[in-house]
Design a protein around this nucleic acid. Structure first.
Lengths: 125, 125
DNA sequence: GTACTTCTTGGAGTTAACTCCAAGTCAAGC
DNA sequence: GCTTGACTTGGAGTTAACTCCAAGAAGTAC
């Protein structure tokens, strides 16, 4: 799969795909003999994984480290696990914050709805 | 309350507080006769609200609009509600994404734990 | 009444994460 | 064998959201 197709498939610009590879956010992608990127199944799995993680805000820096550890082989499995555990903690904490804000928004919206309804009533009285 | 105290209280730098005010993310804060910011209760409520919303990623631009609408008076209550409803939708959608990623991380971590435990066993056999 | 500290403003600088661009290469169509 | 179009690279530019800075004023300690 060439870069145009991958770009479509993952809804990431070609520039973003190249950028991710450049900075080590995904491992180096396969090339044809003439140097053109030709994404393998595994390349695609990396892109999908990174897009997914970036989508919920895991920092590029952290993901670069993960990919780096991965490329160093089995010895780094412990470190990789620790990294994921830490990110999971962060994610949970952010979700907790969001849950609270969501409640607050629900509340605020309900109050707006009530005052607006109240005003309507008064107007038509 | 002067800016140093507000900065402490909300854990936002003085620069951030001034910046928020400058761009209209919070309404103009009260001044002493000599021009020094003196946060009232209401100013504080705004700061707290904005910090809270920014903390879960609501865009500055959107919050500026909300504050702007607020300052235009009761006529804008409908618009303010709509804005909050839209942001709630966004928030819910992001939380949904995060829930999925959380499951994925749980899975990945479990798998790491299993392979690491497996290797330990082999080593000590 | 002068030194010190804390504030003021407008504007410049920084950071993360892309996004765009110029110059060049290569395969395909005619 | 020349044009076209999709690709390559390294590097510059952009955006959102701060963060820092210089110059100056104002209250406080002595």
């Amino acid at each position: 799969m060439f870069i145009a197709e991958a770009s479509e498939k993952f809804d990431l610009s070609q520039d973003t795909l190249r950028y991710y590879e450049r900075i080590g956010l995904i491992p180096r992608v396969n090339r044809t003999k003439s140097g053109i990127r030709d994404y393998t199944e595994e390349d695609c799995r990396w892109v999908e994984f990174i897009k997914c993680m970036r989508g919920v805000g895991l920092p590029v820096e952290v993901l670069i480290e993960y990919v780096g550890l991965f490329q160093q082989g089995d010895e780094t499995k412990g470190a990789r696990k620790d990294l994921l555990v830490e990110q999971r903690k962060e994610l949970r904490s952010r979700m907790e914050d969001m849950k609270n804000v969501l409640e607050r928004l629900d509340d605020k919206i309900t109050r707006y709805e009530m005052t607006i309804a109240e005003r309507e009533k008064t107007l038509h009285r």
